[in-house]
């Protein structure tokens, strides 16, 4: 399983690298352009491209962060085995659900 986790974390890191750059550029553009919240929502609502981009971003976070958290918990607290696997799986689901809820909120 470790090899698959490692592969998933590296692949999600590559996706996150691109997503974070696009996300930051978008924020800088929105702030410098002086866009209001209503104007931002006007651009995201019904826009499938932005919804797809942020869905990908959220899923990459939901894959990447719990795998790293699993290593941190094992190495700093000595928490290993089935218990930590269940815990980080719950973290992954929570990140995915909250993230997707946010994407849904600005899409609909």
């Amino acid at each position: 399983m470790q090899v698959l986790l490692w592969t998933a974390q590296r692949a999600s890191a590559a996706i996150l690298g691109l997503c974070v750059i696009v996300h930051l550029l978008t924020i800088i553009y929105a702030v410098n352009g002086g866009l209001t919240a209503a104007e931002i929502l006007g651009r995201t609502r019904g826009n499938a491209a932005w919804a797809a981009f942020y869905t990908l971003f959220v899923m990459a976070v939901a894959v990447h962060a719990p795998i790293g958290l699993r290593s941190i918990l094992g190495e700093t607290l000595g928490w290993r085995g089935r218990g930590v696997d269940v815990f980080v799986m719950a973290v992954a689901l929570a990140l995915a659900l909250w993230g997707l809820r946010a994407v849904y909120a600005v899409f609909v």
């Binding site: 399983m1 470790q2 090899v3 986790l5 490692w6 290593s71 290993r80």
Partner: peptide, 8 residues
């Protein structure tokens, strides 16, 4: 390739 192997 286990939990305590190279990927750690």
């Amino acid at each position: 390739a286990g939990d305590a192997g190279c990927h750690a």
